[in-house]
Computed example of a mutant assay.
Amino acid sequence: MSEVPLRYRRPGTHLDTAIASGTSDTGHWGVSVIPTWISVVGVVMTVLSPVLALGGVALGGYLSRKADRELDTWRHREETMRMVRWAVEQILEGDEAGTDAGVVTLRSLMRSELLQPEDYDLVAALTAAVAIDRVGPAAYAELENADTEVVEGGAGE
């Protein structure tokens, strides 16, 4: 049977009925020409694409928060070192009020949450050295807890 252009078909003929019903003489008009594996891939991609997008958003949020924490740590460290520098400058000027302010600043910094655990030993050693040298062992002991013992000199003396 030859294919008749649509404009020459008469209504009610066998070919018009087959086109309208979605079947042909062989009965295969309604069968999809897309292979099954492509359909499966399409369904999987339809389901996975939002899940992958959500995963990307979650990963981006995690990396952003991690970078923010690192930046916050860096800012705390910078502020700590600025305060340490200022306190040491005040102590080294030799003025009594400046020395007291510097020692108090170092002691307050040691109790502050601004001080990072990595910097604690440095600030503690600096506070002890500067306070003992400038203020004297007796005044430093008063600044410390009552049960703390001040030891002068190094291990080799």
Rank of each mutant, 00 (worst) to 15 (best):
M1L: 08
S2E: 14
S2G: 10
E3C: 09
R10S: 09
H14I: 10
L15W: 11
L15F: 12
L15V: 15
T17K: 14
S21F: 13
G22A: 03
T23P: 01
D25K: 07
D25T: 12
D25C: 06
T26A: 14
G27D: 06
H28G: 07
W29V: 13
I34N: 09
P35L: 02
W37Q: 11
I38R: 13
I38M: 11
S39P: 00
V41S: 09
M45H: 10
M45V: 15
T46L: 12
S49V: 04
P50K: 02
L52P: 02
L54A: 09
G55M: 03
G55D: 02
L59V: 11
G60N: 06
G61T: 06
Y62G: 04
L63K: 08
L63G: 07
S64I: 09
R65P: 00
R65I: 08
K66G: 00
A67F: 02
A67H: 06
R69I: 06
R69T: 08
E70Q: 07
L71A: 14
D72A: 09
T73G: 08
W74N: 05
W74T: 05
H76M: 09
E78M: 06
E78N: 09
M81Y: 12
R82I: 11
M83R: 14
V84E: 01
E89T: 08
I91L: 12
I91K: 07
E96C: 01
D100K: 04
V103W: 04
V104K: 14
T105M: 11
T105P: 10
L106G: 04
L106K: 04
L109A: 01
L109D: 01
M110V: 03
E113W: 00
E113Y: 05
E113S: 10
D119K: 01
D121Y: 00
D121I: 00
L122Y: 11
T127M: 11
T127Y: 14
A128G: 14
A128F: 14
A129W: 12
A129K: 13
V130F: 15
A131E: 09
I132T: 06
D133F: 02
V135S: 12
V135Y: 13
G136M: 02
P137A: 05
P137S: 07
A138E: 15
Y140E: 06
A141C: 09
E142C: 07
E144Q: 14
N145T: 08
A146E: 12
D147C: 00
T148S: 05
V150F: 03
V150C: 02
V150D: 03
E152I: 09
G153H: 04
G154F: 04
G156E: 15
